[in-house]
Structures are given as structure tokens and as C-alpha cells.
Design a protein around this nucleic acid. Sequence first.
DNA 1: CGATATCTTGAGGAATCTCAATACTAGTGG
DNA 2: CCACTAGTATTGAGATTCCTCAAGATATCG
Lengths: 244, 244
Amino acid sequence: MPPFDLARPGKSGAVDIHPCGACPVRALTVCAALEEEELSRLADIVHTHRVEGNQTIFSEGDTAANMFNVTAGSVKIYKLLPDGRRQITGFLFSGDFMGLAVNDRYAYSAETVATTSICRFPRRKMDQLMDEFPKLQRRLFRLASNELAAAQDQMLLLGRKTAKEKIASFLVMLAQRAVRRGQRDNPVHVPMSRADIADYLGLTTETVSRTFTQLKSSGAIRLLEGSKVQITDTGKVYEMAEGG
Amino acid sequence: MPPFDLARPGKSGAVDIHPCGACPVRALTVCAALEEEELSRLADIVHTHRVEGNQTIFSEGDTAANMFNVTAGSVKIYKLLPDGRRQITGFLFSGDFMGLAVNDRYAYSAETVATTSICRFPRRKMDQLMDEFPKLQRRLFRLASNELAAAQDQMLLLGRKTAKEKIASFLVMLAQRAVRRGQRDNPVHVPMSRADIADYLGLTTETVSRTFTQLKSSGAIRLLEGSKVQITDTGKVYEMAEGG
DNA sequence: CGATATCTTGAGGAATCTCAATACTAGTGG
DNA sequence: CCACTAGTATTGAGATTCCTCAAGATATCG
């Protein structure tokens, strides 16, 4: 499958949103590895795009021609079984990086959750820059290590946590990542659908919904307007997330 | 917790098993990144150990002072919940690398499955070598990317596969990795306990046992002596693994 | 050969899923 | 501005998979 249509203006397309030097999430991501001057080299190869919700960015098995950086909005990455069962392996927010490949192919698919801005770097040119700037290589290695640690946390969640613990962990994760981006962590913004949450936590939408209701009834959280969740009993929610 | 007792001879201890140049798994791992001459630099910093089964190599949260390479045997890496629930996030065999750290701490614990030989590289010196040999850095990045892809496969398994599919996937994974090491893939050698398998697949030992029995009854596999499993109906097992 | 751990099998129970109906929400057009 | 539509979320009832607890069988190791 082709990536979102880069040429088509309107719904999704190439837009120069801001120069890299003024990038609001620069400190969070790969770009932080480089100094002003070097950064311009990155800027030379980058294309910025704005993509609406639920659009495919790339699909598992595609030739991995690009690497991406999310600068606003959110993205889900997932794998499918032949019969359609889906596992979302991660949500990405502004500052997050994606596009690591195995054998020059993407190992998963990526789709926007809501309207999202992304930077696109041609992999070939990125590889050249990595040769030129070992700092960049090191930065990517560190990002991959962090992702790996997050993946292991998620395995623990999927294999050993109850539905309640999974939802609590999910809220805590969203809150902590919001903080990291410099946003407020409570109420937590939950931009994704129940179906997406279910496929991320290894549950069904019904169980996700019921569990939210339970947490609400027990006074741990409150469901607010605009896909927001207020954590009213932080201690309880954090404890639940740890399996306490 | 300290790593296995490096000073104590007998059960586990430092042994010079072979020089790096003659390492049987060299082609599979980090070391493949370097030429003969450079390899000697790696050899200068490595210590080789032999560790008996079920010994701790390092624990989650320990200062990540070393990186390791398994040269024989097998290792399990895992995370725990406070109440003791355990998720094994990976099994390592000869040629596999471990010890990636986040914030200079190990993000998981590592324990031998059976008697195992490992190479230990002090991280600090490894970092120096990486600066000196970008090839090494690139190699590690590639290994981390592969691990990440494997982790995503495992998330799909944990979140969306049935017990039968999990066991079938597990056998296929073991078979494929045996091939990669140049060993025969059928019968599959399954050195780990039912409890370890359960904690890897997000099941209980009883379910693992029952599922093996079912696969046996259906004629898909045969359980042999010496922790070996013969796959008698390859098509069926592979199909099951894919969720077919 | 006995002791101990591991594995298998059984019976019942619990968490989660499936299927189905209802309620809500957001966007659309009258 | 409101009714309508389509999608999404919630709730309910029953089914199912997997878990728990318990006993027996097998394997391993001194």
C-alpha cells in the first residue's frame, strides 16, 4: 500500500509548517542530537506533512523508504493477523519517532489517530547523515533502546495484568507522556477510540468500556467532555497500574 | 542484586573458553561487525563465563555495568510485578546479545535457563569502542531494531493469540532460531520448563501442558525424550502460529 | 532407590469474550 | 435550529477460554 498521498493537497499533503530550528518538539526527538548548523542538514532532507485522522502512513511489509517524526497529533502502529485480529503495539505523540525497519521493510503499519503533523526523512539520506554525524546514530540507538524497554513493559501488561490494571496502566502512561511533552497530565487527554484502546491492551471494546465505568463508579476517575479523563484518586490508579 | 559471582570458581566463574577469533557464534552477533584486527580490541575487554542453570545474571534496576553475549546455552529475561507475577520477555540463545540499558540501569532481569556460556563486556569500554568503530554502533543499532520487531511480534501473540496459537508460535520461533544458529529445527529443542513457557506466553503451566497434550492428540506434534518436540504436521503448526 | 521438583490431568470457577440491544455523539441536511 | 444518520460507546445476558485448586504421574538427582 502507498503512503498517504503526498502530492494531494487538502486532506493530507506536504506543508511547510515551520523550519526545524523553530520546531516545538525538537528537544524531544532525534533532532536534539544535532547543533544548529548540523540541524540544517536535517532540515534539507525533511518534508513536513499534515494528515487527517485514520489515514494510513505506511503498511507492514512496505519498503521502508522513510523515517518519521510526529510533531503534533497522534499515530497508532499495529500488526494484524490474517483473520483481522489487530494488536496496536504503540501510540506515538509529538516528539516520537517511527520507521525502524527490518530488512528494509516496515515491520508494522502506521495510521493516524487524529489529525497529525509529521516530518518525513528519506531513509537513504538519513543513513548518510548518520555516517556523517555519529551523534545522530547514537541518538537513534538510544531511542530504540527506550522503545525496547517500553515494549517489554507492554509485554508485562499484555501477559500478566488484569483488565483493570491494564486500563490504569494505560491512563498512567498517557499522563506521563503528556508531562514529558510539557502538557498537563490531569485530566488526561485520551484521543483514541475504545476500539483502539482495546487493540492496544489486548481486550475488547466492551471490556474497555465496562472497566472505565467500574473505575468511574469506584471514584478513581471521572469521564469528562472532549475525550478527557480526570484521575480523581491518583494513588489508587497508580497502585492499580503497578498491579498492587 | 549482584551479578552471578564472578570470582567464585566451580558453579559459575570466569573461564577462558576460546579466543574471540575462534568464537563459534561470532558471525551471528555484535562481533561480526569487526575485522580480525579490530576484533582483538573487543577480545581485550571481554570476559567469558560459564554459568549453571537458573542463576541470576543481573536484575532489573541494577546499574548496567556490562553488556553480554550468549555463546552457548540459553537465558531468559523477564520483568516482575510486585506480587510476583512474571513476564518473560525473551529467551536468548547462542549468538544473542543482551544488556541494553535505560538510564544506565537494566530494564529487566536475566537468568540462565540451563548451563550457559556468556561473554561479558564492560559497558564503559564498549561505549569507547563504539566511538572508535562506528560499524560496531551500527551493528548494535541493527540488533536493537531486530529485537524491537521481535517484541512487536510477541505483543501480537500476547494480546491476540489463543493458547493453541501461542504454543504453535513458540515452537515455530524456537525452530527458526535453531536454523539461524545452524542447528536442526526438527525435532525442536525446548530447554525451558513449562513454568517458563507459561510466563513467556502469558499462560499458566497447566494450560501450557494441556495445550501440548492437545497438539499431540491432534497429531501435530510428538513429545520426545530430552526436552525435544517433533513437529509431525509442519503445515498445521505453522498455520496455527499465524492464527490461521 | 528414595526425595523432590516438574509435569499432567481433572473439576469447578472466574475473567473476559460474544452477541445483541440501547444510548450517546457528531456531523448533515432540511 | 432541529431531525436524521452513522458511527461510537455503553450496558446486558449468556458462552467460552483460561485460570485456580487439587491430586496423581513422571522425571531428575543425589
